[in-house]
Amino acid sequence: MKRDQVLAVLACAALMAAAPILLPPFYIRVGQLMLYSAALGVAWSILGGFAGYASFGHAAFIGVGAFAAGLVEDRFSTLPPPLLLGFGLAVGGVACAALSAAIAYPILRLRGTFFAIAMLGVSHVCAELNNNLDFLQGSLGLNFPVVTPESIAPETFYYELCLFTGCAVLAVAWQIRRSRFGAGLLSIREDEDTARMLGVPTERYKRIAFVVSAVLTGLLGVIYAHSLGYITTDSVYRDDTNLNLIVFSLLGGMGTLFGPVIGAFLLVFVTQVVLGRLLDFHLFATGLLLVILVLAAPGGVLGFARTFSFRRRANAE
């Protein structure tokens, strides 16, 4: 990312931060979902896009983060709201770090589809445990204390919070991408054995990427749970989230920094706004759209744009 790109992103973020003044509440909620999805997509991409370990079970970290935070916040609900949210974020992040670090070694020995399916298993196992262990209150549901300041509408508050967090996640991903660590992750995606032969500490790098991705996902889960106010197992351990995280990158451009952002914006906008009124029809239409996009632009929106500009340049020469 060049300097003018950084400036462009900051300008976009500033515009988006001002948008709630003009938008009706419904669109603010759509915007919040877009930003939340984009942030999740970027967090997923640190492992799935950069290192090529496509996880099909990142909802596990949304769920673990959300429930860990919720259970602890419930105990300390007398704390002032901003502190409580910060506390919840810390607990959710630590819980996800612990879970991902614990499963990293065995699960990252699997590659490709096997890793994806194993992660789906992790997500389902966590969901089942969450549903059936009474002290986790997964089936009963968990209330989150209100942390929204009274002067701000809740949807605006969560919109801005998601915007801020999204920018932070993007900044983390950007820093990783341009670092030596990021170059190592790319080489792992391209050819893991060759990477190791060149001296890339592949095992360590994969584990770090996994934990970073899990922690960021967990933090977003905590924020999402707060925005819902009340969660059960089914509202955070969602298989459509598991699926969508891959779709965001596929749509926008796998392994790129902005691919998941573009993909998430596109998919959420299409499903919520364009197809939102066609209730019976919208899942079918989403599926169709996906098939068409993936067939027409296998490299995603960014990949398509790149080949297009490449062709134009070639024609000009």
Partner: peptide
């Protein structure tokens, strides 16, 4: 076994980022 999605420069650069 090149890193196919990367440029020649980036391929070689990964060698010099790591290695000895």
């Amino acid at each position: 076994r090149p890193f196919r999605d990367l440029s020649v420069f980036d391929n070689v650069r990964i060698g010099s980022l790591f290695g000895k």
